[in-house]
Amino acid sequence: MTKTKLTRRQFLKRSGATATLMTAAVSGGGSLMPARASINGLPDGFYVPAEEEPHERTFMQWPVNRTVHPDRWFLADLQQTIADIANTIAEFEPVVMLMSKEHLPAASRLLSDPVEVWDIPTDDLWCRDAGPLFVINDNGGLAISGIQFNGWGGKQVHGNDGEIAARVAHRLGLEIYPSGLFGEPGGVEWDGDGTLLAHESCWVNDNRNALPKAEIENRLLSAYGAEKMIWAPGVPGYDITDDHIDALARFIRPGEVIIQVPYPKDDDIFSVSARKTLSILRSATDARGRPVKISEIPSPDRTRVTSDDFVASYVNYYVCNGAVVCAQFGDPETDHEAATTLKALYPGREVIALNVDPLGETGGGIHCATQQQPKTV
Rank of each mutant, 00 (worst) to 15 (best):
E337L: 12
F270W: 05
V324R: 14
I269M: 02
F329V: 10
E256H: 15
P291M: 02
I294C: 06
K276Y: 07
A247I: 07
F310L: 07
D246K: 04
D335C: 11
F329Y: 15
F310G: 05
A338V: 06
P300G: 03
H336E: 09
I269F: 02
E296N: 08
K265G: 05
T340N: 07
G322P: 10
A249E: 02
T340F: 04
V311R: 01
I297L: 15
D301N: 08
Y317N: 11
A287I: 12
H336M: 04
L278R: 09
H244N: 05
S273D: 09
D268V: 02
I252P: 11
E333W: 03
E296F: 11
L248N: 04
D309C: 04
P264K: 04
S313W: 10
P291L: 01
L278I: 09
R282F: 01
T334C: 03
L278K: 07
E337K: 04
P300F: 10
S313K: 03
I259N: 07
V257G: 12
A284Q: 06
E337M: 12
V319N: 10
D301F: 11
D286R: 12
D308M: 06
V315R: 00
F251K: 06
E256W: 13
N316I: 06
R290C: 04
L278F: 09
S313Q: 09
E256C: 12
D335I: 12
D267W: 01
A287L: 15
D309K: 08
F310H: 10
A339G: 13
A287H: 14
F329Q: 08
P332S: 04
